[in-house]
Design a protein around this nucleic acid. Structure first.
Lengths: 244, 244
DNA sequence: TAGGATACCTACTACTGAGTATGATTGAGG
DNA sequence: CCTCAATCATACTCAGTAGTAGGTATCCTA
């Protein structure tokens, strides 16, 4: 290992002070960040498999074929490792919100787009850390930080719901409870999804969005039937809940 | 403490062999079970507050104002403690299924009743243990046991969904994904609900069921509007999503 | 090629916490 | 009183693991 490309940096002299000597340093810096990322991803995978408390730093190190002090060379503590995994996951969701902000669509459709991104993030390698990082495992400072990030996402969903109710694209409802229901269903994906599944995170999220949007109650014939003898109907949106 | 009612058991003689001497024994037995229950409930509360791994048996013992060996006098291991908490929670859900089985209602309404029970159970003191007990923390045998119980519940929900699609009370959908979405939203309650909340578990569950049944897409006027300039409408089911 | 920074390892420390050995106490029944 | 069983405490053992001390090899710059 240790096959670092030892770029000979042939361009010798530079004019000013901060020029040449920092080239290699920069490369190393990038190298270091790559390795740091690898450490964080390895940690995410192990946390995902065995849980935070059942994963030792020796485990993570072994997975990377290094030793524990090497891991500590890139992160300062196990707690920080969990925190970084969390942030990595949340960042994807925030990107989803940003991407959707400028779309000229009814709020329900923007919400659906956000939720699909959300589901993908939860099904990603960082999903476990994102949704299951317990505040009790983190220092008060990091716990506060996480709560803030989570709250932003929650508020974003509620806002989209309120907008949808206003623009008529969403049935009037309690934004808070509805947001909890939606986010909860998606968060839960992290509990059962494993990457070797046949469905992708995006597919699952899309299926969920379909359920959320349509609801269980049959549509169309309007009359909510209370007797149970009505003939089975196989009409619109046949069980292809997975179609994007 | 130790104010055990020392019932003098005045009824002296009994005819057969196993009669009298076992009276006190019986009382003690009952006493023991009460205490055991108290231990399990105390454990559930602590797990709920601090998580499984952040709760030591000394903590639980201190909460009961006894010492660790006393706790071990009633349970054999920390793992078993978690398992018992889990079973206690799941039992409530199973009762929900049983209660609903003989009802002569469309499947959607039976499902709604089950989900309400489900939500109550998740919001109960055992909710955390029920949904967050990680298989990695348990021995393979107990892990299997838990998986079986969980699977039964999952299959029960799927069955109700299928029945609903057949009797026309539920819009055709993918039972598996729909069940995951519903159960996930309810399970997630355990992550944010604390008993000192203003809403009861039943209220939350009812609100969720309302969301699930109706869906986000507005009903009534049928036409799914794509432009966003339509005037706000405040019609049926006004934001009283909490009404039972 | 020396000197310094980087990257990584071996071998620890220190502590937590699950589970236990052993004995004291208490109350019931004889 | 005496015994026996249930109940509970004191005082341990022991494994696992987060985090560190200090050293070594390698590369970069001068």
């Amino acid at each position: 290992m240790n096959n670092r490309r030892s770029s000979p940096s042939p361009a010798g002299k530079r004019p000013a002070s901060t020029a040449s000597p920092w080239r290699a340093s920069h490369e190393r810096q990038r190298d270091r960040e790559l390795k740091r990322d690898a450490v964080i991803r390895a940690a995410a995978r192990e946390f995902n498999r065995k849980g935070y408390h059942n994963t030792s730093l020796d485990d993570i190190a072994a997975r990377l074929e290094v030793t524990k002090p090497t891991v500590y060379y890139y992160v300062t503590s196990k707690e920080q490792l969990l925190f970084q995994c969390f942030v990595a996951g949340v960042e994807r969701i925030r990107i989803g919100f940003r991407d959707v902000r400028q779309l000229q669509l009814p709020a329900r459709e923007r919400l659906a787009a956000v939720l699909r991104r959300y589901g993908e993030a939860v099904a990603s390698e960082f999903g476990w850390c994102m949704v299951r990082a317990e505040e009790q495992d983190l220092s008060p400072a990091m716990s506060r930080h996480i709560k803030t990030l989570k709250s932003e996402i929650d508020q974003g969903i509620r806002r989209l719901i309120r907008e949808g109710v206003q623009d008529g694209s969403i049935e009037p409802c309690d934004p808070k409870m509805t947001a909890f229901a939606l986010a909860g269903a998606l968060n839960w994906i992290a509990h059962w999804y494993r990457e070797d599944q046949s469905l992708s995170g995006a597919q699952i999220a899309a299926a969920f969005v379909t359920v959320f949007e349509g609801g269980l109650r049959p549509r169309g014939s309007g009359a909510q039937l209370t007797d149970r003898a009505s003939p089975r109907r196989r009409t619109r949106r046949p069980a292809t809940a997975l179609a994007r």
